[in-house]
Every structure is written in structure tokens, then in C-alpha cells.
């Protein structure tokens, strides 16, 4: 069983999946983000992958199923609610059960260790949170590489080191975006004399900010509540809380600038940027926007990053 999962919206408590980070796919779908197109390519091209699971959270993920349904592999779309209230929690709990049943039926397995996996996720997230807390002193490039490698491994084998190589210091900046798929971009930012002291990335802040899942009561409702009450993605339609949380962290960490890393044709972040930028302007915090063409866009944006570092 080797299921490729699309994003942080796939509950790790159910079964092991391989988190998609990047893939050099040649597919291009008019006006869709390259990240989603590369996910499709990997599912179709990579024989080691025998299934995939993804949410429906933006217009790009909305169409994944129509490209993957005929792949002959396990294909599951998890409907993550567009709201976060009690109604949504109860509904998502049912969807998670449906996901588990679909995996069990397709692979002929019984997934009976959900509470234990929940505990492992809680512990791992707490360890990542500790590292994040130490970020001003640690290299963000090393931190993000560690997270990406970790998310490729089965949950039981995911280990989080106590520390990482030290940061070279520099002007404190904050990173916003979905998955930081671009290899080397974090290093480019650090080499330009900036120190990434915080973020709202799917694989970092949004991962470990999910409240711990209790094994008491209905485990599925607990997982659903945790999934919906971490730091949100703009796809969850609560820009207000994103602004409040991020601006508080930006102020408390003395951040001098914000770097927005998004995919071309990623509307959720495009919309978020328009209000985020205005909020930053009010605080006189400059923003740099870097737009990636797809998941393997390896450009270092050296000129733009250096200019931004100079402005700071």
C-alpha cells in the first residue's frame, strides 16, 4: 500500500501515506496550478504509487478526480468542509470514516490502530512545534528539508531531531504559502542575509498547530475537530483569523518582511495576498511575492530576494 496524499488535509491517523512534495511532471492544464498538475503526473507515472487521496479545497483540487479516475489505482477524494463549525466537524468525521472504509475495501486490510496513530501524530507534532519554537536560532532550510523527508516515511518511523544546524542569523522574515515545494528557495533566502523566523506553511505551522487528538470519545470526531482547528489554509475561508494570527506572530517576533511563495494560478493564496498585503502595508512591513510555475520550479529568485533583503 503506497498512497500518495495531496496535502495536510488528509488525516494521518487513518493510515500511512506518502506526502506529495514535488514531481517533474510534464502535464500542464490550462490555468490550473502546476502543483496539482504534477500530483496528477506522479500518480499516473510512478509505478511505486498504487493509490492517491486528495481533498476538494480549491478549484485545482476540484478537478483531480476527473484526471485520475481512470488510472486503475486507488483514487479517493476526501471532501473537507468549507466551514469549521460543529456541523462541519460531524460531517468531516463521517467522511474520514468513509476514507478508512475505502482504503480497507481496496487494499483488503483492517485499519484498527487509529487511536494509537493519533497518539503518534500528537507526539510528532509536539516535537515539530518545539523545533519551530527554536527557529530563530535554527536554519529554516534544514528545518523544511527535515520535514519533507519526514513526511515521506511511515508514521511510526517519523523522527524529529532535537536540534538542527544553526541559523546564520540575519533580518527576520516570515514565510507564507502552501507547500514549500521549491528546493533551495529557503536557502536562497538565508544566503541573502535573511532569517526565516516563522511561517504558515502546510507542512510546518499548519501541521503542528492541529490540536492534539484525544483517544477518548469519538475518535473520528476528534480527528475532524483537530483538522478543522489548526492554523487554517485560505481554502477554509477564514481570512480574518489568518490575518489575526499571523500579524500577532509577525509583531511578536519583530519580523521585518514577509515572503509570499505561491503557485501560479493558485487563487486561494492570490485572494489572501490581496488582503494580507494591505494589512502589512498598514504595519509598514514590506512583502515580497514569488510565484512558482510548478512543484519543481527550482528558480532561486536571487535578484528579487537580494533586492528585498536590501530594502529590509
Amino acid at each position: 500500500m503506497n498512497i500518495l496524499s495531496f496535502s495536510g488535509f488528509i488525516p494521518e491517523q487513518i493510515c500511512d501515506t506518502v506526502r506529495f512534495i514535488r514531481h517533474p511532471g510534464q502535464r500542464s492544464i490550462a490555468h490550473y496550478c502546476g502543483y496539482a498538475a504534477d500530483f496528477i503526473s506522479r500518480v499516473l507515472d510512478d509505478d511505486s504509487i498504487d493509490g492517491c487521496v486528495f481533498p476538494r479545497t480549491c478549484d485545482s483540487t476540484r478537478v483531480l478526480e476527473s484526471y485520475l479516475a481512470g488510472s486503475g489505482k486507488f483514487v479517493h477524494r476526501l471532501h473537507v468542509p468549507a466551514r469549521r463549525d460543529g456541523l462541519a466537524v460531524a460531517y468531516l468525521a463521517e467522511r474520514i470514516k468513509g476514507y478508512q472504509k475505502a482504503v480497507e475495501a481496496h487494499y483488503g486490510v483492517t485499519l484498527d490502530n487509529v487511536p494509537q496513530r493519533g497518539e503518534l501524530v500528537n507526539e510528532r507534532n509536539a516535537a515539530v512545534a518545539r523545533l519551530y519554537g527554536a527557529l530563530p536560532e535554527l536554519s529554516f532550510g534544514a528545518y523544511i528539508d527535515m520535514l519533507h523527508a519526514m513526511l515521506q516515511r511511515p508514521l511510526a518511523e517519523q523522527t524529529v531531531p532535537d536540534t538542527l544546524p544553526a541559523s546564520a542569523g540575519g533580518k527576520p522574515v516570515y514565510l507564507v504559502g502552501s507547500t514549500m515545494c521549491s528546493a533551495g528557495l529557503a536557502s536562497a533566502i538565508e544566503e541573502a542575509g535573511m532569517n526565516i523566523v516563522g511561517d504558515r506553511l502546510t507542512e510546518s505551522k499548519r501541521l503542528f498547530s492541529a490540536p492534539p487528538v484525544s483517544a477518548k470519545g469519538d475518535i473520528y470526531e476528534n480527528i475532524a475537530a483537530s483538522m478543522l482547528h489548526n492554523r487554517t489554509s485560505p481554502t477554509q475561508n477564514d481570512f480574518d483569523s489568518i490575518l489575526q494570527e499571523d500579524l500577532a506572530e509577525i509583531k511578536s517576533k519583530g519580523v521585518l518582511g514577509v515572503i509570499f511563495v505561491t503557485q501560479k494560478y493558485c487563487e486561494p493564496y492570490d485572494y489572501l495576498y490581496s488582503v494580507y498585503k494591505k494589512a502589512l502595508d498598514k504595519l509598514s512591513v514590506p512583502a515580497l511575492r514569488l510565484t512558482l510555475t510548478d512543484s519543481t520550479d527550482g528558480r532561486r529568485f536571487d535578484a528579487a530576494i537580494e533586492t528585498f533583503a536590501d530594502i529590509l
Binding site: C58, A82, N237, F239, D240, E267, Y271, K278
Partner: peptide, 26 residues
């Protein structure tokens, strides 16, 4: 119809400071 609309409505909510209700249809 799309996921764009709730995102767009978020920027309207920021502009007007009024409640936003998102209806989620599976």
C-alpha cells in the same frame, strides 16, 4: 459552482467588515 467564490467573498468580508456565511455543498 467553484471554490473561487468563497475565497472572493472573503476579500469582500474584509472590505465591509460584515459576516460571511459559506454554504458548503458536497
Amino acid at each position: 459552482q467553484c471554490n473561487t467564490l468563497p475565497n472572493w467573498w472573503n476579500i469582500l468580508a474584509e472590505r465591509y467588515g460584515v459576516p460571511l456565511i459559506v454554504l458548503d455543498y458536497p
